[in-house]
């Protein structure tokens, strides 16, 4: 991991326009003495209109940023809930073009909230360097991109093309990441740093591991960008604990997809959960 600093592309992905918009959203939350709330919707789940409605409702219920999951055939970092939603979206005809349209529509309908796309390396980079996909995301209005199976070790090329397109590349750190590596990854991340709360895949959990407080503090101490915590975050109590532990943001995904119900259409229930989560972000 010592080689990471040497391969850092210039200009830095944290200097992009996208990173600027993300930073502004975190700053607004911080000024209100709370953590930023980052809900997650799966593009095209249960269908295009359904995901647009869910995304608008999440924003209206208090989202500071919105993460948009690009459905993938082999989501190996995801638990049962997001696998199911991803699979259903693909069955319903989700494509990258349609996901990009969703991003563009949301950007027009709710311009104040930065949108961050999340996908897998083969969708975003595949056999090339990801240049076209990064440009398409930026053109659609995304501020940043998270690639679940891309670490800075393999990310330099994609980071360069995404940065050139004006996108912030957001990297992840995990509880299994060594302290030296955490600092190196944080130095490479743009917009914010995604802190994985637990050792495992995505999915709602009854409780978060007790170690997460220490993790948030340690990572916050070395990260030049805001730190948002995700994976397993599902209840107001989790959000409250994380906000008080010093997290700059919280990411809630599977719990919201669960709240949409088996058919993915209970937008009212999801919206209610976002509202209660937002209340819990206060420090």
């Amino acid at each position: 991991m010592t080689g990471l600093a040497a391969t850092r592309p210039a200009p830095h992905t944290n200097d992009t326009a996208g990173a600027g918009r993300i930073a502004a959203a975190f700053a607004r939350a911080r000024d209100e003495n709370r953590a930023a709330l980052i809900p997650y919707v799966v593009a095209g789940y249960p269908d295009d209109e359904g995901s647009f409605a869910a995304a608008c409702a999440a924003i209206d219920a208090g989202a500071d940023l919105l993460e948009i999951g690009l459905p993938y055939s082999d989501p190996l970092a995801d638990g049962a809930t997001l696998q199911r939603a991803s699979h259903a979206a693909l069955l319903a005809g989700a494509t990258l073009d349609r996901s990009l349209s969703l991003v563009a529509r949301l950007g027009a309908a709710r311009p104040g909230v930065p949108l961050v796309a999340m996908g897998y390396a083969n969708q975003l980079i595949g056999g090339g360097d990801g240049r076209d996909r990064a440009k398409a995301l930026a053109t659609a209005g995304a501020a940043g991109v998270i690639v679940a199976d891309l670490t800075p070790d393999e990310g330099a090329l994609f980071e360069a093309v995404a940065t050139a397109a004006g996108l912030a590349v957001i990297y992840l750190v995990a509880p299994t990441t060594s302290p030296a590596r955490r600092a190196a990854i944080a130095a490479r991340s743009g917009g914010f740093l995604y802190c994985v709360s637990l050792v495992g895949v995505t999915g709602a959990r009854a409780s978060l591991p007790p170690s997460v407080r220490g993790l948030v503090a340690d990572i916050g101490a070395v990260s030049p960008v805001p730190v948002a915590v995700g994976f397993g975050v599902s209840k107001p109590a989790h959000v409250r604990a994380l906000a008080r532990a010093g997290a700059d943001g919280v990411i809630v995904a599977s719990a919201l997809v669960d709240a949409l119900g088996r058919d993915g259409r209970d937008v009212a229930a999801m919206s209610h959960l976002v509202t209660t989560l937002r209340t819990a972000t206060a420090r």
Partner: peptide
Amino acid sequence: RYVPETLMG
């Protein structure tokens, strides 16, 4: 090595 960060260690 294209894997989630959790596995890198």
